[in-house]
Amino acid sequence: MATTVESPGIRREWQRFTPRQRLIRYAFYLVAVAALIQSINSVDIIPEFLEDAPAQIVDLFARMWPVDWAYYPKTVHAALIETLHIATLGTVLALIMAVPVALMVATNITRWPALRLLGKFILVSSRSVNSLVWALLFVAVFGPGGLAGTLAIAFRSVGFVGKLLAEALEEAHKGPVEALTATGAPWLSLMLKAYWPQVQPSFWSIALFRWDINIRESAVLGLVGAGGIGMALDDALNLLYWDQVALTLLTIFSVVIAAEIIVTYIRSKII
């Protein structure tokens, strides 16, 4: 063994991990395999449906083709514009709500633990509720339509934006802050002239990143009645017009890809 070093009385063998680390790892592998086997055994899968699947997929594509292009100007275009508005306005609202929360959470700005805890609680509760659930809640409150979707997107994004913004604030250099404090600048000037220029690039990059995600998310909100292209998709699905479904999916796909290209382009310009 090349790794064995013989010395008087002591026999040492190099090992990458300590026995404890190895034990933890093997325990993890064991639990993972056990969970998988247990899940496969108990999950409800109907074998007849699985056998039928290839035929169903062929049937699905046959029904989808040819795509019903006439559906686009009739319904999908307006719904698409609404989706874009939902995603954009939702992102703007999320940014407005996230800034104070981020200021509350950032350790170098807020030194009051109770306030920080409250901010953290807001961020975590925003993130742990799915955007579809937020949409269901707002549909129940404001009725179906784009407003419910916008608020769902905004409330869902606050946690994400606030967390990243707080991290950016915490990474800001102390130099400009101390310089401005030494001149006796008030709190607002400190924020605008010391912190804002430092966090501005990350602010815009977080905003763009979230906008890109929100375009994807707002496309499904219509399934629960919260407006946008999902409503057109839902209508077509309920009527089993698969050629219209295909058109809607194609539209969503192109918009998502276009948003990703735009975001990548702007990010490369501003950062």
Binding site: V43, F49, I57, L132, A219, L223, I252, F253
Partner: peptide, 21 residues
């Protein structure tokens, strides 16, 4: 990555039927 999992789920519900699969 471009479709939300719920939209992909719609297609698979048509392909393999309702349920966990």
């Amino acid at each position: 990555r471009s479709f939300h999992p719920v939209i992909v789920a719609i297609l698979f519900v048509k392909a393999v039927g309702f349920g966990a699969l």
